[in-house]
Amino acid sequence: MLNDITLGQYFPGSSPIHRMDPRAKLILTIVYIVAVFLVKSFVGYAISLAFLYMVVRLAKIPFSYVIKGIKPLRFIILFTFVLNLFFLTGEKVLLTIGPFRLTQEALFNAVYFSLRLVFLVMGTSVLTLTTSPVQLTDALERILHPLQRFHFPAHELAMMMTIALRFIPTLLDETDKIQKAQMARGADFESGNLIQRARAMIPLLVPLFVSSFRRANDLAMAMEARCYRGGDHRTRLRELRYTRLDAVAALVMAVYVALIVLEGHFFG
């Protein structure tokens, strides 16, 4: 049951987007996020949608996957929408319900805000769908590397993420095993109210914690035995190299940003 959990939402492939340097993807995603905040009109969102659609097609992932990424956030989006709808004031009153007045400006604003969230989520989905967690960790380590001069623990952070990713399946397996062992002794994880069910988790969590600490201890010993000494002077098996692909991607992104800026100028 627990074995078929996939890590992240990586959608393997060999499209140009997949083959881009993960650092470039990460940086361009951040640029995209900033650009989305600059959008001022529906024209801008239309441009964004076209851009996103093009990228998704290039990445050869079904567009429905990108849409699916919004699903977990639907309540937050709805909440933002409603909040903006009623707490912004404006001139043109469209509707009055009790003490609340719905204005045209508020309606537009609410729609803009929600769309902004939708586009942010969809854009970042493209990153996580086309980049494996390992590549992401690698990219993060190397992008943050210059900050190490200011004692920012870039290598340690990346190492922690790698180890976490490595141990998630192991710990899931173990949870499964403990759960079965406790169920064999009559533990009940499924019935009762929320508090009772939370309490039923204790015999599951305690052994899991104890064993995690033992694993951490073992792993530290094993890493030391294999000459681990932190991030200094460390080399990597896989080197990251920017290619023409990344330059082209950067150019396309620049065109998109330029369009958005122009749009803000003419329609804002």
């Binding site: 094993a222 294999r226 681990y228 000494r229 080399t235 990597r236 098996l237």
Partner: peptide
């Protein structure tokens, strides 16, 4: 085993 892919784990000591 430290890394999430077999060959990366084999590389760990050499990287260090």
């Amino acid at each position: 085993i430290v890394a999430t892919i077999v060959e990366e784990d084999v590389a760990f000591g050499l990287e260090n």
